[in-house]
Design a protein around this nucleic acid. Structure first.
Ligand SMILES: [Mn+2]
Ligand SMILES: [Mn+2]
Ligand SMILES: [Zn+2]
Ligand SMILES: [Zn+2]
Lengths: 135, 135
DNA sequence: GGCTTGAGTTAGACAAAGTCCAATCTTTAG
DNA sequence: CTAAAGATTGGACTTTGTCTAACTCAAGCC
């Protein structure tokens, strides 16, 4: 999951995104780890060494990456959105005590009995969230 | 799903909640319809006839009802929490265009292949969200 | 090299959801 | 009825995220 600078530039270009310095920094933060990070944390990590990216740019970039299908949002905590560099279909284990989010492989879970959709509707995705806690 | 005033008082008492005027109004709003309402909308509906309940009380009461297991939260929209008067296990269909949330009966969906949990962990719940859209 | 142009970045104002607090009011036990 | 405990309130505050108008910067052209 770790990309060279050049590979990252290619990745962005392939998704129709101009590879600016800030976008590459943010992409690096996202793709160099397989975690589920909040915007806040991405901002902090991006500016860890040198403060060079603004909050507005982080939000702009995350929304751009999401719209272009580079990353996806994980909605489990009402307080903030998490960003997932893994856009393959998969599910999540959510530790409600610690806030930790872990992946569940898509093929691990079998879901059957999907209701028929109203005509003219399509399924955009199926998210399974397994909420767990200590004890 | 419609309760008389007396039945509502009993319901709250059974959950260890003093049945104040405001709480009964809010409970009425929640339990007289089988919908998934936001705090904002609950506030508006509660004060539809007479403005008599504050925003703080609506939030206090929703959190209290949730903690006591009278209602549950539905986390599908990063912008706001929805409150569900149905605490039985069940799942949700989420129309991403309109924001509409519909129930899927628990026994309609079959989920198999749950991952083994780390020792000392228990599953608090499994939420399936089927995101759908037009086209 | 200078100039133009358009895309990208930015600080800071703004908005919306939700929490907190100290003063006040209501409920309830006795 | 009374007093203590519990509930409610307006408004300040916090947090997450969006918006805007000014500014920066790289690319293409001369
Ligand atoms: Mn968003
Ligand atoms: Mn909440
Ligand atoms: Zn994931
Ligand atoms: Zn429901």
């Amino acid at each position: 999951m770790s990309y060279s600078r050049e590979a990252m530039v290619e990745l962005l270009r392939k998704h129709g995104i101009s590879p600016t310095h800030q976008r590459l920094e943010i992409a690096h933060v996202l793709f160099s780890r397989c975690e589920h990070l909040s915007a806040d944390r991405i901002l902090a990590l991006t500016n860890e060494r040198f403060a060079e990216t603004s909050k507005a740019t982080v939000y702009n970039t995350l929304n751009l990456f999401r719209d272009r299908g580079l990353i996806r949002e994980v909605i489990v905590d009402p307080k903030r959105v998490f960003y997932d560099p893994n856009t393959q279909p998969h599910h999540h284990l959510y530790n409600v005590d610690t806030g930790e989010i872990t992946d569940i492989a898509a093929d691990a879970l079998e879901i059957s009995g999907m209701p028929a959709l109203p005509p003219g509707m399509v399924t955009e995705g199926v998210d399974v969230i397994v909420r767990i806690r200590a004890l």
